[in-house]
Design a protein around this nucleic acid. Structure first.
Length: 482
RNA sequence: GGUCCCAUCGUCUAAUGGUUAGGACAGCAGGUUUUCAUCCUGCAAAUCGGGGUUCGAUUCCCCGUGGGAUCACCA
């Protein structure tokens, strides 16, 4: 026996990878990497009816996007064989046989209708449904056409150790003759994951706390088979905003790749997800995947559920966006630019590049930028403006008669000004603004250039438009007043 | 209904018997070159309730309360 740590992430290929799943994958990955162990990606495709084509690729793409790599996976069989459960039916049959031979598994003689009646009876009696109370006296030979059930080896209270929760226990009510192999020949999750974990040498099972209550059922299978338990690592749930329940697909939980589409960076998602249900026990809040691997440890996994706080996610994305090189930022924005401002009449690369720092300063998310582009927030840069002279006047200024001489003076100043940076423009205009009043000068300047009441500051606006355009707009504003 | 799990600012969390209960997001107030945004500074904000144990409980135990999970030929 070796003591190598082996963890796995075992999604079913249903075409959807929500953040809860990803967080589970991440923790399992981190723990394996931290301990120089193996991380296995196993596909649990034993329910043919729920399977979605392309889902396996989708799962892999999601993990790859985040930089979560696996040692064995659907594309990479291990010494134990395939990582896809539907390829492993022989194993399940083999162990099913073991249980049958031990007298601990038997075919289920009932029809679905009969079971429904039992279930209803239990419900009416306000009791949990227990199949084993209806266990047949004698068993026929299993011919594979009926579901194969476990005969619970011992009805007892189970107590076990969880690496996060400590000692857990559950009563006899949680033990039942669960189905091992379905009538269609495929194993259930309950059975298959145990066989696979055994054959793959999985040492630590990370999974959500919804599995706590079924753990006694699993334990009875381990016992029936006479195999050792792995370590159980229960992860806390990720909850909806209102804390009402676990974040699920029908509560608006998004697929991880939808976050990519919106413009969240993989670094953001990784960092943020790691901090729901785990903490470094320090005040550090930014972690790369490598740093997470370094810092990760099971004893700082949280017991209680955590709300997915999308506002904080947005904030964190801004922090990561700030770290991007200008080239990477241009690349990042491309999908938003392509369909929007790039089609405007005055669009040109140079102007766009002068605009970039301003966009960047304001940007938390690409999708938000795209929305702004579509709403025309930056149209003043790439389109002639239709200035409404009424908004040129500053606050309680006496009116446009004051604005005109100020704009003329600004034109005067700017004609001899170097437009090489916003700072240079500021330096040229500042003394005059101080002399007359900042608002009185800078407000009309900015509005004349942008045509908007809300926009970037006058120096940046002038810089972005460039000298000729800026002067032209100021002159046009003057002409319009007269 | 049975069984099980959980419980620190609105949210993510730190403090594993001794702290003015710390940090971050959000909020509010100021400030940085007029507006919006960004950024900076500051403020406000929590140990679910009741019993124990202890010199001392956020921390340990019990009982409540609240929330969650589970009781499939789904995983």
């Amino acid at each position: 026996m070796n003591d190598k740590i082996i963890t796995r992430f075992a999604p079913s290929p249903t075409g959807f990878m929500h953040i809860g799943s990803i967080r589970t994958a991440l923790f399992a990955y981190l723990y394996a990497r931290k301990n120089h162990g193996d991380f296995i990606l196993r596909i649990e495709d034993t329910d043919k009816s729920r399977e979605v084509t392309g889902a396996i690729e989708h799962i892999q793409e999601s993990l790859e996007w985040l930089g979560i790599s696996w040692d064995y996976g659907p594309n990479k069989p291990g010494p134990f064989g395939s990582c896809i459960q539907s390829d492993r039916l022989d194993s399940y049959r083999k162990y099913a046989r073991v249980l049958i031979d031990k007298g601990l598994a038997y075919p289920d003689p009932y029809t679905a209708e009969e079971l429904d009646v039992f279930r209803q009876q239990a419900k009416d009696a306000k009791k949990p449904f227990l199949y084993r109370l209806h266990r047949p006296e004698s068993f026929a030979e299993w011919d594979g056409t009926k579901a194969l059930r476990l005969k619970v080896p011992e009805i007892k209270r189970y107590t076990w150790h969880d690496e996060v929760r400590g000692e857990l226990s559950a009563g006899e009510e949680m033990l039942d003759d669960i189905i091992l192999i379905k009538a269609d020949g495929y194993p259930t999750y309950n059975f298959a994951h145990i066989i696979d974990d055994l054959e793959m040498g999985v040492t630590h099972i990370m999974r959500g706390d919804e599995f706590i209550s079924s753990t006694p059922k699993f334990l009875s299978i381990y016992d029936a088979l006479g195999i050792p338990y792995p370590k159980f690592v229960t992860l806390p749930p990720i909850l909806k905003d209102d804390k009402s329940k676990k974040l699920g697909k029908r509560d608006g939980a998004k697929d991880i790749l939808d976050y990519r589409e919106d413009g969240y960076l993989p670094e953001t998602m990784l960092n943020f997800l790691a901090l729901i249900g785990w903490n470094p026990a320090t005040e550090q809040e930014f972690f790369s995947l490598t740093e997470l691997t370094e810092a990760f440890s099971i004893d700082h996994i949280q017991k209680s559920g955590g709300v997915f706080n999308s506002e904080k996610l947005l904030w964190m994305n801004k922090r990561y966006l700030d770290k991007l090189s200008i080239e990477d930022f241009i690349e990042y924005l491309k999908p938003a630019v392509a369909e929007t401002i790039s089609k405007l009449p005055l669009f040109d690369e140079e102007t766009y590049h002068r605009l970039l720092p301003t966009i960047r300063e304001r940007t938390h998310l690409r999708q938000a930028v795209k929305n702004e582009f579509e709403a025309g927030e930056y149209d003043w840069v790439f389109k002639d403006i239709d200035l409404d002279t009424k908004i040129l006047a500053w606050k309680n200024d006496s009116g446009l008669s004051d604005v005109l001489p100020r704009l003329e003076k600004l034109i005067n100043i700017l004609e001899t000004t170097d437009f090489s940076s916003p700072e240079a423009i500021k330096e040229a205009v500042w003394p005059y603004a101080e002399e007359i009043g900042r608002g009185e000068v800078l407000w009309p300047m900015r509005v004349a250039i942008t045509g908007r009441e809300k926009s970037p500051d006058p120096f940046n606006s002038a810089y972005i438009m460039g000298k000729p355009q800026t002067l032209e707009r100021l002159k046009k504003a003057c002409a319009k007043i007269v």
